[in-house]
Write a protein that binds this DNA or RNA. Structure first.
Lengths: 286, 286
DNA sequence: CTAATAGTGTCTGTTAGACACTATCTA
DNA sequence: TAGATAGTGTCTAACAGACACTATTAG
């Protein structure tokens, strides 16, 4: 005995009569915030837009979701199409941006993803397809004011190689019990990010920085075996400040197990450690 | 001098020629996880579906985004249409679910939002429009196994009034450096949640529980002035376990300021406090 | 007085910041 | 040996869990 709706239709009848285009549908895209650490700096992959809109601006790799394609698959495909990169160690959804007027073409709802990978997973990054260029930008965020429910930060996105620098002022403000984040580009910049991509970048930086100390997220930016100094270097690159070596080692060792191997460096050889996966569940979904 | 793309088009020409329907577009919906605390329990608002698909199942209030409507506005509108509720103290995006096969009608990408509100903001909740019924369900999550990067929990969603109970087994597993969450309904249930709504509910519970101690999120479930005991009751309802009164008071007072007012109760009158908004920036976007 | 609820104080083990120190390699 | 990097130990203040205690109302 099949359930029928108020029009007396079975599920099959309902579906047969269903018209997905009764109303105008938005278009759906995905964007990737891909980060790594190299040369002691947190890095972000950007492409230069080849076509309208935002032509010539730097942008997150991304593009349209195929109708029958899962979103995660779409964002991986777009990244590969535009930059030739296929390796991902850490991968999660960040946020969906869907303001009605965020793109001049049509209503476009975009979902941003965050991916992290160790430096040596990135062989060659070359612009392909829709991208006029691709480059790794150094990225740093520094809080400049913090009071009464308002936090003002300076978010710098710089590529020496491309002679490109973008400096944004990001303001997080508590309004009616929830946070509102605004950003504006500062005049010392010589180029800009397409659309609202700065918001996704800002959220990604916040996420990685907030979790650097309390979760194992750093190990997605490191090879499987690494020295304590390498971990600390990545930690300092992500947070943007130096930390005490003794204290850092004391605390991080709780998440590690010694492999028994050594790495020869200039002075005393360093012991190699690997991340104890017992601590992985700390990587919350939130 | 206007920028032109490889086809020699200006932005205006490009936009004029742009066809948003060159490819099939998914449909876009929003869903609301609305929670409150009453009778010492964390509560969740669900509606009973009146139409296919998932007819007769309990579901999150929600529906289609109008083409030129912001997503936040859409989710508020749908909530009002289906349940008559308009008050929101806390409001944020949770996650976007977009698996290609998650809805039998067509490709539907849905964005779930979380809203919290104090009990006394909810006047009458009545099913309207697309909903056959609406009810507040008690919700509790209890971890039953935790080892080696895997966490298994039991998520109970119960309404005595509607004689409805749904028990899900939720498994968070660390795979290749990121978390995968799976859920299955247990046979002791007598009804179920539509589509993948259990995933949004699970994320919402995690989020509120994780932030209960370290942020001011609880104050979105409380009136502007409240006693320490009322705060502790809400805390215990959210986390699902009792806590030490002395320690709780010592710690929570850091976020409060005394209003000087008193509330007469059965025994000694209780001092009233309000949340110190200096602590609101702790409400991170992550 | 008792019952009921509000509210405080104190002990202890753990953690986090600051900082001085030792160890082992190469040239 | 010096120079460089790895790695340890210790003091202290702050914090967190456990638990015993006092305070003020109504009746």
């Amino acid at each position: 005995m099949e359930k029928r709706n108020e029009q007396g239709q079975t599920l099959e009848e309902f579906l047969a009569a269903y018209d997905a285009n009764r109303y105008r549908n938005p278009s759906n895209t995905v964007d990737m915030v891909l980060m790594t650490v190299s040369e002691g700096k947190l890095k972000l992959l950007l492409i230069k837009r080849k076509n309208h809109p935002f032509i010539g601006d730097w942008a997150l790799p991304g593009g349209f979701i195929d109708f029958e394609e899962d979103m995660e698959k779409a964002v991986m495909r777009e990244l590969e199409e535009e930059t030739n990169i296929t390796d991902h160690t850490y991968f999660r959804q960040l946020y969906t941006f869907g303001n009605a007027d965020r793109d001049p073409r049509t209503r476009i709802i975009t979902t941003a993803y965050l991916s992290l990978t160790p430096e040596d997973n990135i062989r060659q990054t070359k612009a392909q397809d829709d991208a006029a260029d691709a480059a790794w930008f150094s990225i740093s965020k520094e809080v400049i004011r913090l009071d009464g429910g308002t936090r003002e930060s300076r978010l710098s996105i710089v590529s020496e190689e491309k002679n490109s620098h973008m400096i944004y002022l990001v303001t997080d403000e508590a309004q009616h019990n929830y946070m509102v984040t605004k950003s504006e580009i500062l005049p010392e910049s010589n180029c800009r990010l397409a659309a609202d991509h700065i918001k996704a970048v800002n959220m990604a930086v916040d996420l990685v920085q907030n979790r650097a100390a309390s979760t194992g997220i750093l190990f997605n930016l490191l090879p499987d075996e690494c020295t304590l100094r390498e971990i600390q270097n990545v930690y300092e690159a992500v947070t943007g400040h130096k930390t005490d070596t003794g204290n850092f080692r004391r605390d991080i060792k709780k998440m590690l197990k010694a492999t028994g191997n050594q790495k020869m460096v200039k002075g005393k050889p360093a012991a190699l450690y690997s991340f104890n996966p017992m601590y992985q569940y700390l990587e919350e979904n939130l």
